[in-house]
Amino acid sequence: MRPVSGWRVLFVALGLVLIVLCACGSESACGPGAGVVSRVVDGDTLVLQSGERVRYLLVDTPESTGGKHECFGSEARDFNRSLVEGRNVRLEYGEACTDRYGRLLAYVSVDGREVNALLAREGYACVYYVAPAGGSRRSEFEALESSARRAGRGLWGACSAVPCSR
């Protein structure tokens, strides 16, 4: 039987440390990497069971709260609710962690589908870019909005005046 070299022990130990770190890596520098959605605020904001408020990156849905009910706001809120409320979601952060209201800024995924992109693709949202948050994916979301607009999907076909248009 050959003796185990010190290098081999070191590499095995480092490998085990990396496995443990990856298993615990649901946190990022910005916040949690996952969580259960306790409630949907509106079409582009949710609250996790842990209390964090999350604002979806790169999308803006018509308002449906605070006495302000814009065209297609209720539909956007209901669509968002149908996708995430009570569900475990994954959060991926962009170039900025929070907005001026202290909400986490994230791409939100459920069952392998990114909700932010679905909102834009299906016409529930307009692109909303505030530098630097989302800069790396801005053109992708602008293309999704453009496609929904051309097809008259969602708010683009239902609203005479699109509430979030520029």
Rank of each mutant, 00 (worst) to 15 (best):
R2Y: 11
G6D: 09
G6S: 06
W7F: 12
R8G: 13
F11G: 12
V12A: 15
V12H: 11
L14T: 13
L16T: 12
V17H: 00
I19T: 12
I19F: 07
V20Q: 09
L21E: 11
C22V: 15
C22F: 13
C24S: 09
C24Y: 03
S28V: 11
A29S: 12
A29L: 11
G35A: 10
S38V: 13
R39G: 14
V40K: 04
V41M: 06
V41L: 09
G43T: 04
T45Q: 05
L48K: 01
Q49Y: 01
S50M: 04
G51L: 02
G51P: 00
E52H: 08
R53I: 07
Y56R: 01
Y56G: 03
D60M: 09
T61M: 06
P62Q: 03
S64C: 14
T65M: 10
G66W: 10
G66M: 14
G67I: 09
E70Q: 14
C71I: 06
G73P: 06
G73R: 00
S74A: 15
S74I: 05
A76W: 01
R77V: 13
R77Q: 14
R77C: 13
D78G: 08
L83N: 09
V84Q: 10
V84T: 14
V84R: 08
E85A: 15
N88W: 07
N88M: 10
L91F: 02
L91G: 02
E92N: 10
G94H: 03
G94W: 02
G94I: 07
E95L: 10
A96E: 15
A96F: 04
C97N: 11
T98P: 01
R103T: 09
R103G: 12
L105I: 15
Y107S: 08
V110Y: 04
V110L: 09
R113P: 05
V115S: 05
N116M: 01
L119K: 02
L119M: 07
L119T: 03
R121W: 01
E122N: 05
G123I: 00
V127D: 00
Y128G: 00
Y129D: 12
P132K: 13
G134K: 02
R137M: 09
E140M: 05
F141D: 11
F141P: 02
A143M: 02
A143N: 05
R150H: 04
G154E: 00
G154T: 00
L155K: 01
G157Y: 01
G157I: 00
A158L: 03
A158M: 10
A161T: 15
V162N: 01
C164R: 11
S165E: 13
R166K: 14
